[in-house]
Every structure is written in C-alpha cells, then in structure tokens.
Simulated scan of single mutants.
Amino acid sequence: MSLPTFEKKRLIGLVAVLSFGLTSLFAVLLPGALGPLIPATFILGFFVIIPLVLLLGEDFPLVESGDAAGASAATTAAAGDPLETLRERYATGEIGEEEFERRLDRLLETEDLKGRIDADAADRRDSRDRRDSRDRRERETELE
C-alpha cells in the first residue's frame, strides 16, 4: 500500500491544521500528563515538517510530482477532445506505439460512425423542417 500524495499547498495546510489542532487538544484535555507533547507537537509541525515540505518540494514523500499534476490538468483540459488526449498519452509515454495505433483506429471508426449518425439526424431535421413549412403554408392558404 502506497502513501497518499497531496499538492504542496494542500499538504502544508493539512500539517498546519493538524499541528495546531493536536497542540490545542493536548493543552486542553490533559495538560499535566501530555505536557511535554504540547510544545513538541507545535514545533514538529510548524518548525520541522512545513519547512521540509517547502525545501524538498516534490522530493518530499507526501507531495505529488509536478508531472502528475500537469498530466491531470492536461487530461481535464483535453477531456472534450479524445484525439488530443490520446496524443498526449502517447507523447508522455503512457501508452506505446501499438496501443496508440489501435486506439487511434478505433477512435477514427467511432468518429466516422458519429459523423454518419449526425448527418442522418441533420437529414431528418431538414426533412421535418420542410414538412412543417409545407404544412404551415397549406394552413395559411386554407385560412385565406
């Protein structure tokens, strides 16, 4: 099981909230028994972990790499264009040449099919519009 990863800002916020929360909890609940943990928790969070995250950045184990963030941003940006998404995945080495060719062929087949379906739907709309127009003219001549 691997550790979860966070964006750098999110991890810093999480550490800050946990450090402050645990420090407050220890100070309120058991100040006598947990007395030594109060300053240790605060110092560990704010003066050790947060500076380490800031200094190490992507090398810190819980910070996700910029490649993953960039790939997810590219994926969401190109979500509307499957061909662009496929090209991006091939360019980053996520899929090989054979897989790229196979998916490209399938994508082009479905695009052709989609184009035919769209053309058929447009033809049906045009014929329906012509029929409606003809019916409207007939009603207008009947009313005169």
Rank of each mutant, 00 (worst) to 15 (best):
F42D: 14
T75D: 02
G45A: 04
D135L: 10
L113A: 12
E97C: 07
A69Y: 03
D129M: 03
P82E: 11
R106S: 15
L14T: 06
E58I: 09
G96Q: 03
L30N: 08
I12L: 07
E101T: 14
V15K: 02
T92L: 10
D123V: 01
L56T: 00
L55S: 07
A78F: 11
I50F: 01
G66N: 05
P51Q: 12
L37Y: 03
E94K: 15
E64D: 11
S127C: 00
F20Q: 15
R134A: 04
F47Q: 10
G96C: 11
F42G: 06
A27Q: 06
D132P: 13
G93C: 05
R137S: 12
T41L: 07
R125G: 00
T41C: 07
G115Q: 09
A16F: 02
E109A: 13
G93I: 03
S2P: 10
A91L: 14
E98C: 00
A27D: 08
L108A: 14
D59A: 07
F20P: 01
A122G: 04
G21V: 00
G70E: 05
A16H: 03
P36Q: 11
T5H: 05
T41R: 09
L143C: 09
E97V: 09
D112E: 15
R137V: 07
G35V: 02
R116Y: 02
E109N: 05
V15E: 04
V15G: 02
L108P: 03
A79M: 08
L62S: 00
D105Y: 01
P61A: 04
T41P: 13
A91T: 05
R134V: 01
A33C: 05
L14R: 06
P39R: 11
T110G: 15
A68G: 01
R10T: 04
F42R: 09
S19L: 10
F20C: 06
L86V: 07
R124T: 02
F100L: 12
R134Y: 01
D105P: 14
E88P: 01
R134G: 04
E109C: 13
F60E: 04
S24G: 14
E111R: 11
L29F: 06
F46D: 10
D135A: 06
R89C: 12
F6H: 01
G96I: 08
G57W: 10
V15T: 05
L11C: 00
D118K: 15
S19Y: 14
E99L: 15
E98S: 11
L113K: 11
A119C: 11
L14G: 08
V15R: 01
R87L: 06
R125C: 00
A73R: 03
T76P: 05
A69I: 13
E97P: 14
P51D: 08
E84F: 00
A33D: 13
E101F: 02
L104H: 01
I43V: 06
P36G: 02
M1I: 11
L108H: 15
T23F: 00
L107F: 03
L18T: 06
R137M: 11
I117G: 11
D105L: 10
L55P: 03
G32K: 05
E97S: 14
D67Q: 06
L3R: 03
R128W: 13
D129W: 14
